[in-house]
Amino acid sequence: MLHSRANDPISEDPLNSAPFGYSPESLQREALYAELNNAGVELGTYDRLIVDWIARWDYPTVATIASLIRRTAHTPK
């Protein structure tokens, strides 16, 4: 998962199938924290433990969770 929007694999649109690809755990963790930060989510110690755990999951699952966070953060209130 990259931070450059041009190469950004995190979908801003609803997903109709599993994202395809691979990303190492370190980049998945980085992407999750970036999306949570961009969404303005304040994290506690246990929150960080769970994010670190989720970052070890398979790429399609992590990319979907990151996409959900991104889309939620951009949803008008």
Rank of each mutant, 00 (worst) to 15 (best):
R29A: 12
S23N: 07
P19H: 06
A39M: 11
P9V: 10
S17M: 14
P24Y: 01
A34G: 07
G44S: 13
L43R: 11
E42Q: 14
Y33I: 10
N7Y: 07
S17Y: 15
Y22G: 03
L27T: 06
D13G: 03
P14V: 15
P19S: 05
L36P: 11
P14T: 14
I10H: 06
Q28M: 08
D8G: 05
P24L: 01
E30F: 06
D8C: 09
N7W: 08
F20M: 11
F20D: 14
E12Q: 03
S23Y: 02
I10R: 00
P19L: 04
S23K: 02
D13R: 03
E35N: 01
E35L: 01
E35D: 11
S17V: 15
Y22E: 08
G40N: 07
A31D: 07
G21P: 12
Y33H: 12
A39D: 14
P24F: 01
G44P: 04
L15K: 01
A6S: 12
A34W: 08
Y33G: 04
E25Y: 05
A6V: 11
A31W: 00
A31T: 14
P24H: 03
Y33L: 13
L36A: 12
S26L: 01
Y33C: 00
N16D: 07
A34T: 14
V41Q: 13
E42R: 15
I10W: 08
R29V: 01
P14A: 14
A18N: 13
G44C: 08
I10P: 05
P19E: 10
D8H: 02
E30T: 10
E25W: 00
R29Q: 10
N37C: 13
N16R: 11
A31C: 13
D8W: 03
L43G: 12
Y33E: 11
A39Y: 13
L15S: 09
S17R: 15
